[in-house]
Design a protein around this nucleic acid. Sequence first.
DNA 1: ATTGAAACTCACAAGGT
DNA 2: ACCTTGTGAGTTTCAAT
Lengths: 149, 149
Amino acid sequence: MKIDGIDKIIIKMLVKDARTPVLSIAREVGISGAAIHQRLRKLEKSALIDGYRMTINPKSLGYNTTAFVGVFLDSSSLYSSAIKRLKEIPEVVESHYTTGNYAIFIKILCKNNEDLMHILNKNIQNIKGVSRTETFISLDQQIDRQISI
Amino acid sequence: MKIDGIDKIIIKMLVKDARTPVLSIAREVGISGAAIHQRLRKLEKSALIDGYRMTINPKSLGYNTTAFVGVFLDSSSLYSSAIKRLKEIPEVVESHYTTGNYAIFIKILCKNNEDLMHILNKNIQNIKGVSRTETFISLDQQIDRQISI
DNA sequence: ATTGAAACTCACAAGGT
DNA sequence: ACCTTGTGAGTTTCAAT
């Protein structure tokens, strides 16, 4: 899969705004909309494009607290059952099986510290095999981006 | 800002595919395209919708390794200069100022372990004020989603 | 808040180089 | 393999309800 300058413009414009019309891109590049359309189909088939998503602003829903939680498991054999339970907690937006001290490392979005405490104590600590957790609260996020092309 | 069932369908369809035509949504809910269009404009103005983004598949570019790195800073006064340097490293896709042991907590996407080592040793450890780092490599990601509406 | 119609813009299949 | 044309489909505005 080789990507030329035109493809890069297509990708750059759609990463910024996924609803940009193909013809706007066409005008920018200087070729027809159909040509852009064809290139886009090829990029989509090539698996380079994962999809187009609307992103919701969590703050507008009152979700003002981001936290990372390292989860200790009694036994790694409990991993898949723990994941199943974590999927049922909507505030858990990412989960990773990581090297290092923790068995599972998760990212949580919640409304405030009280809400976070509730999720930790009632939802996560109750999961079978979870012995202990360590929490890092994000006070400020300065970088949030995709890998560059 | 109040959100009814129709808004939820609009949001749900666009979260899944941001390029879904307004008329497809209109057919799904059974009202006119103009009505959907008007609701969408209102949702966009309300800040609930953050934007529409194309997502790139990092694996298709050879980025197969995700890691979290806790960064220790000599002094918290070096925070903003360190962030400035971190922004120059394209592999750093997230940065947080966190409570707990670390001053800065970052997420890195890189091609392989050798690449990761290079970024840690040459790029991050070289930043003024960075004394030490702790790295967690993600071996498996099971959850990756947005906050639900 | 929703509609239908008008004017405009776009997407995509078919065909040309 | 890459491009343009043509046309059916989609978007957007607006007066009316």
